[in-house]
Design a protein around this nucleic acid. Structure first.
Lengths: 139, 139
DNA sequence: ATTGACCTTCCAGCTAGGGGAAGCCCTACA
DNA sequence: TGTAGGGCTTCCCCTAGCTGGAAGGTCAAT
């Protein structure tokens, strides 16, 4: 299979697949003409990577998951550990975004959004001090 | 004020402040010895930037917000527009993370996490097809 | 023979800075 | 007066995870 074929199969752009080879995630063979020659197993790995990335796993996580995937003697605990840590990171990120969202929604709500220059959003960004932020939270 | 002073005042690392000068967000004067010489207004701008960044605004958003902040004749509608778009992006991001979280939590839950190699997480990553994903969603 | 689709490598850039080297500047203290 | 220290300067490389483009080789069809 050429790179275009595995790209179509895995749903990954050819550029991404070349990049994954660069960083050692896949190691396709080479045809005499210099083209990358992907085996079934390479295509399978790439699909695996695409799905892991879609779940938000980092490249390093993917590397480890792939190694576990290929290790018949793995313990499922190792996989679960990686997934649980990722889940925690996701939860942290969601919490952070929700805090931003709350503050921002509050400000957007308070802004008239008309032709006048008075704007609570700019006022907040320009004057709020750390102490005032603290007060705001307890309010 | 030297860079260390505004760093302390704004809470931004000196490196970040130099970067902001690089990309034209602040334009401090220079002392005869070559040191950056920040005015009150520069310190104020940097604090503004720090707070806008903390709310997740991109650098380009910050650039626009700063321009509006300095424009006495702005319409608050312009500010509100930027903030609303950012709010939308945040909502999209939260939705995306929640989907990941749901799938991942489901898989983590299904995994025994013991010494045995059988692992639903790896099984899912390695075998799921797009059609199966679609079915899963409707289930 | 030539077009057009594919493939190759290499180089540059994106976000938003962080790390660290080499070298000035300024103050304090002996 | 010399020196130690801290702060400041520029410069360049590094991060994650690709993406875009240029210059050129290959292949199948016309």
């Amino acid at each position: 299979m050429n790179i275009g074929d595995v790209a179509a199969l895995s749903g990954l752009p050819a550029k991404t697949i070349r990049y994954y080879e660069d960083i050692g995630l896949v190691k396709p063979l080479r045809s005499p003409n210099g083209y990358r020659a992907f085996r079934e197993s390479d295509a399978h790995k790439l699909a695996f990577l695409g799905r892991a990335r879609a779940l938000g796993f980092s490249i390093e996580d993917c590397r480890n998951l792939l190694a576990l995937y290929e290790d018949e003697d793995r313990a499922s605990a190792e996989v679960k550990e990686i997934a649980e840590q990722h889940l925690e990171r996701i939860d942290e990120k969601i919490a952070e975004l929700r805090e931003m969202r709350a503050t921002l929604a509050h400000l957007v709500n308070a802004c008239a959004g008309d032709h006048r220059p008075d704007c609570p959003i700019l006022a907040d960004l320009s004057t709020k001090t750390r102490d005032e932020e603290r007060l705001e939270k307890t309010a």
